[in-house]
Simulated scan of single mutants.
Amino acid sequence: MIQAYKRLKTDKKLVVAGGASHSKEYEKFLKTLVEDNKGIIFTGHVEGRELSELFSNAYTYVLPSEVEGMPIALLEAMSYGQCVIASDINENLEVLEDKGFSFISGDIESLYDILAYTDAHPQEVAAQKMMAEQYILSQYDWDRISYETEEIYKGVLKDKV
């Protein structure tokens, strides 16, 4: 992400949010990539109001993960109406469908191409933001999911009686 962003000619900042999930050496390595680039900000772990502000005010949300389970952060970003750019691993693509952009996992050039495209096409970003929020709220509505889960259990119990 950092390498792709550094190639981009933009006034937008790259905010890297979250704690170091790897070793301290890896965190130091990432910070050496930044050098004196004032456009890249490491926030460390964020939650609550600060996290909400980041999601609400971001131009796009990028999830460059190479391994995921159910990407909760992706769901959360989309629920905030974010235009998502995610790696093309199956877990991300299953959530994203056509409601955002994907790039080849681990491919800096592919990520750069999407970042450059979205930077140059704010109207497309705005359209993706609207689709993302509506989609997530309809597909991942916890009230509906809990009702459907309850109905499954009722059916299973009914079959056992």
Rank of each mutant, 00 (worst) to 15 (best):
G106S: 12
Q3K: 15
V46C: 13
D98M: 08
L157P: 03
S110Y: 00
R144M: 12
H45F: 15
I104K: 11
L115K: 06
D141T: 01
L54W: 12
D88R: 00
I2Q: 00
E151P: 08
F55N: 09
S23T: 15
P122N: 09
G44V: 14
Q123M: 05
D11Y: 03
K38W: 03
I136K: 02
I72A: 13
M131G: 05
I145T: 04
G18W: 15
A132H: 00
M78V: 04
Y26Q: 14
H22N: 12
D119V: 02
T118C: 10
L93Q: 12
I152A: 06
A127C: 06
T32N: 09
I114V: 15
K13D: 04
A120I: 03
T149Q: 11
V62C: 11
Y153G: 07
I145H: 11
S105D: 05
L8T: 01
Q3D: 14
D36N: 14
Q82R: 11
M1Y: 06
K160G: 01
D159E: 09
Q134S: 09
D107A: 08
D98H: 07
A127V: 03
K31E: 10
T149M: 09
N92V: 00
G81N: 13
T43F: 14
P71N: 03
E47R: 15
Q134D: 10
R49T: 08
K31Y: 06
E148L: 14
T149E: 04
V156A: 13
